[in-house]
Write a protein that binds this DNA or RNA. Structure first.
Lengths: 142, 142
DNA sequence: ATGCCTGCAAAATATTTGCATGTAA
DNA sequence: TTACATGCAAATATTTTGCAGGCAT
């Protein structure tokens, strides 16, 4: 399986998505966009995406993986989830929701927003404005 | 100001705390414990504690700062707060509570537990057990 | 005396960046 | 053609670790 197996319609769709985000449609970006957005919501790390890319017969450098993830992030195509100081996680689901994080594994699970809403959000301190609320529920294997 | 300015009572108190945690009472640990626990709840990074230690006329290496923070963490004297992949934060308040994090600054603010409790905590997926719930409210300067 | 601590420097890890080359528009 | 992308390697930043010497118990 590789990028040449994609249909013209798939490529057009991804190209449009990239251009709508202000990014040029290039082969590495198309392939990474396909991996990221082609099969529903998912979570990746730079490393997991790099390995997937190679399995997809795409020769991208790690720098391009990082650069692409950061560009997609800036463009609002991805969301970053900070749960582990060892590694950055990226979520293709950019809507408001929260996460389970399994300690010791490299794995996140989405929690729909309605299953974990807050009773009340405290006011931001004077001079600051709220930019986001992240809830992380940490799990251990039983 | 340096560690020799501490009273015998202060030193005894900190020594007891260290020994109760299963750690030997050494000069670097006493001084760091004084900085960490001597003035109410606070948040530090390895770097901020390192600078404070030097201002306190304590010559500790960065390795000792990191090792000590990790030992205190393992002993339950500190809690780690994961909000930023650039750096680790340690909180001397180990009770259940949440945080404001100011984007672009190196600063955390505690939120008392009763100001931000969840309506409901979702069940852990089969095979896992809940280990903690972290709420981070991100702020930007207005 | 023994085992835990510490400092120093080197290693390990994740991520970013400079620069020359390549490619989309 | 021109500006943006990419690959490679080197740089950066944080944290961890190996080892020799020091200190608490």
């Amino acid at each position: 399986m590789n990028i040449d197996a994609l249909t013209t319609a798939q490529i057009e769709h991804l190209s449009d998505k990239l251009r709508a985000a202000g990014l040029r449609s290039t082969k590495p970006r198309l392939a990474l966009a396909h991996l990221l957005f082609g099969k529903g919501d998912r979570h990746v790390t730079a490393e997991s995406l790099y390995e997937e890319a190679r399995a997809f017969n795409l020769s991208v450098s790690q720098a391009t993986i990082y650069n692409t993830l950061n560009q997609f992030l800036d463009a609002g195509l991805l969301r970053e989830v900070i749960v582990d100081h060892a590694r950055s996680y990226f979520d293709t689901n950019v809507s408001n929701h929260h996460h389970f994080f399994i300690e010791g594994e490299t794995r996140l699970i989405d929690i729909p927003l309605d299953q974990v809403s807050l009773k009340a959000v405290p006011d931001a301190p004077e001079g600051y404005e709220l930019s986001g609320v992240d809830v992380v529920i940490r799990l251990n294997a039983r």
